[in-house]
Amino acid sequence: MDGVADMGGDTRFFGPLPRIDPEEAVFPHEWEARAFAVTLLANRAATSSNLHAFRHALERVPEREYLATYYGRWLASAEILLTDSGILAPGAVEARARALRGENVTEPADPEPNKPSMPTGGGGNLRTIESPRAFAVGDRVRATSDAAAGHTRLPAYIRGRVGTVAALLPGQVLPDTAAHFIGEDPRHVYSVEYDARELWGEESESFSLTVDLFEPYLEKV
């Protein structure tokens, strides 16, 4: 999905790098530790831990909020997942926060439960795929130019670009359908290598870039 989460190569986000602090605490603030755990548990309750639905919720966090704090972004995505599945009413968290702050607020009633589900082929995201692969190592492939309206793992900076299949990766649940509970639809996955000049032009620094792409994103050149 186009939006703030898809940052690769986007000069809007360019700027000085933060300092690397080898001693950085895992959770610098207590609320971040609790937000980490509570968000994972919220996603368990809301989607039976659908990782792709979680990432899609993160993509839908409004930009200003997305950029404010990392675990604030997680909390916002938890609220999206919980309201989508009818566990919490819209505004329930804000109302509770105001109540905790001592304000006199009426908290909204719980909505009708609406937890989405889909059949699963097992734990995790790796799947054995019987159908033959469309591409082999060394094939030249072009990524689709289409921008997905929903969730996708094809970064915008790769769209329409030609690369070379560098490695065959295990079959995996397709994020584009799984995030929307349409189905796991497992697909072959490829590590595709791009020359920097194909991505950024002749004046680019010299380097190669590999990105892991699902078969439906690609066509043979």
Binding site: R34, A42, G72, V93, E94
Partner: peptide
């Protein structure tokens, strides 16, 4: 964000969807 976390956690605790030991 700390207040927001506390609010979310309390809502989920009430509904039995999270528990302190697992957190």
């Amino acid at each position: 964000p700390a207040l927001r976390e506390e609010a979310l956690e309390s809502l989920l605790l009430e509904r039995g969807l999270v528990d302190t030991a697992t957190i």
